[in-house]
């Protein structure tokens, strides 16, 4: 009995030692690669954040509204974006190299999939960025229009516009990534249909009252404009 236990223990230790001697050097090399990548990336990030100015890009970020959208504090700068992009780019290359050291089927598959996914990730990221920017822009437009028209739920309307456009961009991005595309698409169709149905029902059932409530100040405006129509703003 004791002999059997000893044999099992010896076999386990031998297997463990075998695995350690097989994977430890690769693991150490991978760690060294990752550490090297981190050191290079860290140094480059510091260098770029100090040396790269990119005032033109800063101006574009500010004027286009992308900067304030991504960072509400308004401190987002081109140098920061470039430095962080380079940092994470080098870290990704380091990670892929570190994984490939193991030379296993799983590691190869991971590296291949990551490289193949990268352009799609970038495309999806760009779609999301444009989508969110557009959502913000259109939402603001709706807000100003609705508020100036005296629409009672101006902020809700603006929020709805923002959500719809952002949702569309998420659906398109998921389609590019081929990630749960049917789920997002179905959710979007249901959402859009629900919105349309709600609006149709409310308008159809309460059209007169609804419109009167929807545009009270507009009607009041028209009435009072007629009363004091000699008032010229210009």
């Amino acid at each position: 009995m004791i002999r059997t236990l000893q044999q099992v223990l010896e076999q386990t230790l031998a297997r463990l030692s075998d695995q350690v001697t097989t994977y430890l050097p690769s693991f150490l090399v991978a760690l060294i690669i990752l550490l090297g990548a981190w050191v290079v990336a860290f140094c480059l990030r510091i260098l770029l954040s100090r040396a790269f100015k990119g005032r033109g890009v800063d101006r574009f970020l500010h004027e286009s509204g992308i900067g304030p959208m991504l960072d509400h504090s308004g401190r987002l700068r081109a140098s920061l974006i470039v430095a962080n992009t380079v940092f994470w780019g080098i870290m990704l290359i380091g990670l892929l190299n570190a994984v490939s050291v193991f030379d296993s089927r799983l590691a190869t598959l991971f590296v291949e999939n990551t490289v193949a996914l990268l352009p799609k990730l970038l495309t999806a990221g760009a779609i999301l960025l444009v989508g969110f920017w557009l959502a913000q822009y259109m939402g603001r437009g709706a807000l100003v229009w609705a508020s100036n028209e005296g629409f009672p739920w101006a902020r809700h309307l603006a929020a709805l516009v923002r959500v719809v456009i952002a949702f569309v961009s998420v659906v398109v991005a998921s389609d590019v990534l081929q990630f749960a595309r049917t789920v997002f698409l179905a959710a979007f169709v249901i959402f859009a249909a629900a919105v349309m149905l709600t609006i149709s029902l409310v308008v159809a059932l309460n059209s007169r009252d609804f419109l009167q409530r929807l545009f009270p100040s507009r009607q009041e405006t028209s009435r009072s404009e007629r009363e004091r129509s000699l008032w010229s703003h210009l």
Binding site: V144, W145, N148, S222, E225, R226, S229, L230, W231, S232, H233, L234
Partner: peptide, 15 residues
């Protein structure tokens, strides 16, 4: 002194 203005004139567009 001018004629009555268009009551539908959009003030925000004018502004």
């Amino acid at each position: 002194l001018h004629d009555a203005k268009d009551p539908g004139a959009d003030l925000s567009a004018m502004l």
